[in-house]
Structure formats: C-alpha cells, structure tokens
C-alpha cells in the first residue's frame, strides 16, 4: 500500500507548495495525469536507445523506471525547475547550448 499512498500524496504535496485555495477534483485528476504522462513518456523516450544497443536500452529503461517511481511526487520537483524566473531560463538555455555543441561536434566527427 506504500506505493499507492505515495501516488495519492502527489496532489497533496502539490497543493501545499503552489496553491492556497481548495483543491478540486479536476485539479487532482490533472496532476495525476501529468504525473503518469511524465513517467510513461520519459520511459518511452528511453526506449529509443534500442536503435543503438538493445541490452543498454533494457538496462536504462529499468533504471529510469525505478528512479522515476522511487521519487514519486515528481510534479512539484519538476515544476520548481520550470518557473518564470529569468535566471533559471538563462541557466537552462546555456546548458542546452553546450549540450548541442558537444553533441553535434563529437557526433559529427566520430561517425
């Protein structure tokens, strides 16, 4: 029952952090859907690794699934990173720039 409780704590945690009013049914359903969608879609993205190596894909999928489910109320943690603050946006954009450059530079040279 621990996992089940964890799952339904998502909405409670979300409410504590972000809102002050009462939490309605539709909001809870939205947050739960978001949680499930995030887990499922990230795992689906990881499955794309099978085009590189099937064994690696299996290991990675299991690993990512375990990590995601163990940290279950993902949405509060996730939403803190997606704020409207300029500093966070700048940080992520520069990180992305460096990842792209590294990826294309090395990837283009070594294949």
């Amino acid at each position: 029952m621990k996992l089940y409780d964890k799952f339904f704590n998502v909405a409670k945690r979300f409410k504590q952090i972000f809102t002050s009013g009462s939490v309605t049914n539709s909001e809870v359903s939205g947050i739960l859907t978001a949680e499930l969608l995030l887990i499922v879609s990230i795992i689906l993205l990881v499955v794309l690794i099978r085009h590189v190596n099937i064994l690696l894909c299996g290991v990675m999928t299991l690993l990512v699934a375990i990590i995601l489910i163990a940290n279950m109320p993902l949405i509060p943690k996730f939403k803190v990173e997606q704020e409207d603050s300029l500093n966070k946006m700048l940080f992520y954009s520069i990180i992305t720039l460096s990842i792209i450059i590294i990826f294309i530079y090395w990837g283009g040279n070594f294949v």
Binding site: T19, I31, A34, I42, L45, F78, Q82, F103
Partner: peptide, 21 residues
Amino acid sequence: LVVIFSAIAMILGITLALTQT
C-alpha cells in the same frame, strides 16, 4: 536532435499544461 527536442517539447508542454490553473 530535431526529433529529441520535439519529443521533449511535447512531453514538457502537455505536462505543464495539465498542472496550470
């Protein structure tokens, strides 16, 4: 690269849309 960024955009966009008020 294009596909990965698009897929991430799909996931993040819809996930965040679900949590907005």
